[in-house]
Write a protein that binds this DNA or RNA. Structure first.
Lengths: 247, 247
DNA sequence: CCCTGCGTTTGATCCACGTCAACCCGACGG
DNA sequence: CCGTCGGGTTGACGTGGATCAAACGCAGGG
């Protein structure tokens, strides 16, 4: 926590700014690029940005210039409408991209907020377009990423439109679990970075309902919950819960 | 309706297959392209496809090869999960693109179904990627289209997550109204192409609730509803309804 | 150590929408 | 002309989750 330690860490990380030796390269934009292509991508990532918990990466209404790749940390995005209502539209973790919504109007349409101290790589969008005209693989991969975002959103629409509270929370936890697993963390035990209120907003539920549903899962022996620490005891049970209900 | 008339119309439309003289060029993919660029795009649109009401344009699970631009008609897309539940994820009208969800996994993730006799232009995706490496404007425009889809989905998530039935239906009607207007049709009077059930599925409501809400709007003097024919009598009233409620 | 504050849990009550069921109505076929 | 059929409307009733309210528990500060 000392100033020196922070400086030292900064220096260390600057050394490995490049995509080509970033340990996320299998998760992030560079997937499938040849070494020489990766070199080009290195030049593209113009800047890193560090954020503290609670900092805004960008705000709705700001001019869109770059997309961001999460290098470390955890984000949420949310939209709000005039009358004060808001909704969390997603949670982003390591290797995921932020800001794709801004491309359409050159203006960000949501807020992106760090839920813990985080670091992102800024990728100026016009550069990305330029480079993806040269590198097929990059172009195609970028298209896939955008498309995946659309598919993900459809999943959330499904969840919000047809599922009951238990199913929503089960789906949410299983999704988190799987994403942690993909990043080499335990799929069974993790810390939530977001509050009950934020989960509720994402799932279209009130925080009380989220809390009650957690308790309920715990009573059923599906989970161990302590504050934001979650241990999944019975993955299959959660999965069944998600699908089983019919009407 | 005679066979001859149909044939004649077919012949007529084949003549103007090209984007360069398509009257949708201001709405569809070619927006903003220079004449010589438009020529190149012409070669890209490999085939038209006609569909009758109820026909599937593609089904979830099929291999993805092309995206489609709606030339005429009206579509819905829906996703379904194992247990039989399904959800309409969108309604597409003239000039809008279908199939973007398939890019991510090379497999369509939803069904696209014609709600009336329709015609689409098939755009082989690999060709589109090729051409957009040559034409900046096309590339950028395509990115904007994908991004707009993401923003639209966020809007639906907002609707499903935070709005009550009346607000949802008001938002839905205003959205349709505006899209009809953009296409030169009356924003105040139009025919719904979809059933109450399909509206309900899209809005996360049951058809009875949709029906009741229509009746309610009619009692309030906001709408005149007769079957699928809608006349908006009081746009401002609908808008206020959409925003006004707080909690 | 205690005080304060915020996020969370838990309980009691309420209500918007779902469910179930009857009925209506325009389209279509015989 | 009537019978049928599918989508739409309307009513009565049930319920999942919202709302309101109180209490808890951990973290940070004095």
């Amino acid at each position: 926590m000392s100033k020196d330690a922070a400086t030292a860490r900064l220096a260390f990380e600057i050394v490995k700014t490049a995509c080509s030796n970033c340990n996320l390269r299998e998760l992030c934009l560079p997937i499938g690029l040849a070494p020489e292509e990766l070199k080009k991508l290195d030049e593209l990532v113009s800047a890193r940005r560090r954020l503290k918990r609670g900092d805004y990466l960008y705000r709705a209404g700001q001019v869109f210039e770059s997309i961001y790749a999460v290098r470390s940390g955890f984000f949420k995005t949310d939209v709000l409408i005039e009358d004060g209502r808001d909704q969390v539209t997603g949670f982003q973790m390591t290797g995921e991209l932020l800001g794709l919504d801004g491309i359409s109007s050159e203006i960000h349409t949501c807020n992106a907020i760090a839920l813990e101290d985080s670091e992102v790589c800024a990728i100026p969008f016009s550069h990305l377009e330029g480079l993806s005209r040269q590198i097929h693989t990059l172009q195609h991969h970028f298209h896939k990423v955008m498309s995946r975002e659309i598919v993900r959103d459809h999943g959330v629409m499904m969840l919000l439109g047809t599922m009951r509270a238990e199913e929503r929370l089960a789906a949410f936890l299983l999704n988190l679990s799987q994403r942690f697993k993909a990043r080499g963390y335990s799929p069974a035990e993790f810390n939530l970075r977001m509050s009950r209120d934020e989960i509720g907003s994402y799932l279209g539920l009130k925080l009380e309902t989220v809390s009650r549903t957690f308790s309920h899962f715990q009573e059923e022996g599906l989970l161990a919950v302590h504050q934001r620490k979650i241990r999944i005891l019975h993955t299959e049970g959660l999965k069944k819960l998600m699908t089983h209900q019919r009407t």
